[in-house]
């Protein structure tokens, strides 16, 4: 087990968001965090990464508490891909090179540039290295964000709705790459998502949030019409097609 989240509680001044959230993720495993809007998916990811400081609970990576790590040391262990925002005037290569920031003492080395190069190649973006971010399509931009996180050489990868705003082709392409890379590199990945069918297709385990708490968690078996209806208040049915389970809202 690489990532262990224990009894996390978080409150904004106006309202509580998360209460007693506990789960763990193994190496090479992809966990989908699911739930309605405003249910605390993003907050959970930010608490793991200490972008937000939880009121209670602990996060361990390989048995070590993230509270014991400085920001750079933490960034060497956790890569974070935030919800997609518009691109800046940086070039793709410079953006991915930022993933090496936690390792930089005074300036980048040739090794840092080579790691960034490798991350771009893994995402199939080598040919775009010197384009500006604001010239890229949504899918390309998201691949750059993931490449930057990979350049951090993390043990844990947190992704906040990595396929939002992408078309179907790009959704499948990006998730396939995430699936492959996390398995190949033994990265424990946590991904907040909205699309249940994509989650079912690509994730190994599932965690449903409801009313500030973890409502259900487990393998594919936990994704049942009853659980989905209790979380989203929408009746669904699940059918099998070519070996894949597909969720239909009724």
């Amino acid at each position: 087990m690489i990532l262990s989240v224990n009894h996390i509680r978080f409150m904004y001044p106006s309202r509580p968001v998360l209460d007693d959230a506990s789960f763990s993720v193994n190496q090479g495993e992809l966990l989908a965090v699911l739930g309605t809007n405003g249910t605390g998916k993003t907050t959970l990811l930010k608490c793991i990464n200490r972008i937000l400081q939880p009121a209670a609970g602990s996060v361990l990576i390989g048995g070590e508490s993230v509270d014991a790590l400085g920001r750079n040391a933490l960034a060497q262990k956790i890569g974070y891909v935030e919800q997609q925002r518009s691109g800046s005037r940086a070039t793709v290569f410079n953006a991915v090179l930022l993933g090496r920031k936690p390792y930089i003492r005074w300036d980048i080395t040739r090794h840092d540039a080579a790691v960034a190069d490798g991350a771009l190649e893994a995402l199939g973006m080598s040919g775009h290295a010197f384009r500006f971010l604001d010239e890229l399509s949504g899918g390309e931009l998201q691949k750059v964000n993931i490449a930057r996180a990979l350049a951090q050489e993390p043990e844990v990868l947190l992704m906040d709705e990595p396929t939002s705003n992408l078309d179907l082709k790009n959704q499948l392409e990006v998730l396939k790459l995430i699936r492959q890379i996390t398995r190949d590199r033994g990265i424990a990945a946590v991904m907040a998502m909205h699309d249940l069918n994509l989650a079912l297709r690509f994730a190994d385990r599932f965690l449903f949030l409801k009313g500030r708490k973890i409502h259900a968690a487990g393998g594919p078996d936990v994704v049942t019409p009853e659980i989905i209806e209790s979380v989203y208040s929408v009746p669904v049915t699940i059918v099998s097609h070519s070996g894949n389970r597909i969720i239909y809202p009724l």
Partner: peptide, 8 residues
């Protein structure tokens, strides 16, 4: 948030 995730 990305900057914080990069150690800033």
């Amino acid at each position: 948030d990305s900057a914080a995730g990069l150690g800033v």
